[in-house]
């Protein structure tokens, strides 16, 4: 497993340099451009799309076939991507938390936690929906789904803060809205993980 994560890391390092620069720029900007939701959410959205790019590279380079003969189970191969989502998402989450914390915490905690929970949701949802599709169908056939989901997640990034939080607040449960969003995202992600493993076990390489 460590080997697989190292490989993901090496690839991310090589192919994602421009992306990393963009993420940093947006993060910076989000501290000053007061409350611009897009600037706040964008770094997490593009980070969350990374694993899908990495997966399509795997197919292009025939790494997927090559590592099928190595001492990894298909389960481990899938899990490496999901762990990558968690690790990269966590990194962006922490940095964003610091950036937004500087801006928001002096005035009160509520907006801060809402934004954190939204970031988490953004980070987990894209991969949770797309990864199983790609593991089932392969990158090529999943391409349309890929673009639909990117579009939808970006749209969600605009809608959710304004309508979503109030909607969640009106939900007939006593859990605070941010926590609810986190729980739902986590469950979705876990279900997606298990589903991807099942799909990949059946794949012909």
């Amino acid at each position: 497993m460590k080997a697989l994560l190292l490989k993901e890391f090496y690839m991310a390092k090589s192919y994602m340099r421009v992306f990393v620069a963009m993420v940093l720029i947006f993060l910076f900007a989000s501290v000053w451009a007061n409350g611009n939701m897009f600037l706040i959410m964008y770094p997490m959205i593009i980070t969350s799309m990374l694993p899908m790019s990495l997966l399509s590279y795997d197919e292009k380079f025939h790494w997927d076939r090559y590592c099928a003969a190595m001492p990894f189970t298909r389960s481990q191969v899938v899990s490496a991507k999901y762990i990558f989502v968690l690790l990269s998402g966590l990194a962006i989450l922490l940095i964003s938390a610091v950036a937004q914390g500087i801006r928001l915490l002096p005035e009160g905690k509520e907006e801060f936690f809402s934004i954190i929970s939204l970031l988490l949701a953004m980070g987990l949802t894209g991969p949770a929906i797309l990864l199983p599709i790609i593991y089932k169908l392969g990158s090529e056939r999943a391409r349309i789904a890929y673009y639909i989901v990117i579009g939808a997640v970006c749209a969600l990034a605009f809608i959710l803060p304004y309508d979503g939080i109030s909607a969640a607040g009106a939900a007939p449960v006593s859990i605070p809205a941010p926590l609810l969003i986190c729980l739902i995202s986590a469950l979705l992600f876990a279900a997606s993980w298990l589903l991807s493993i099942q799909f990949y076990k059946k794949r012909s390489l």
């Binding site: 090496y10 795997d58 076939r65 090559y66 001492p71 990894f72």
Partner: peptide
């Protein structure tokens, strides 16, 4: 087809295989 990622060099191959 040898399936290493195109960005890899021989040192990185060694590091990944060592853990494999």
């Amino acid at each position: 087809e040898v399936g290493f990622p195109e960005c890899f060099n021989t040192r990185q191959v060694n590091n990944v295989m060592r853990l494999t």
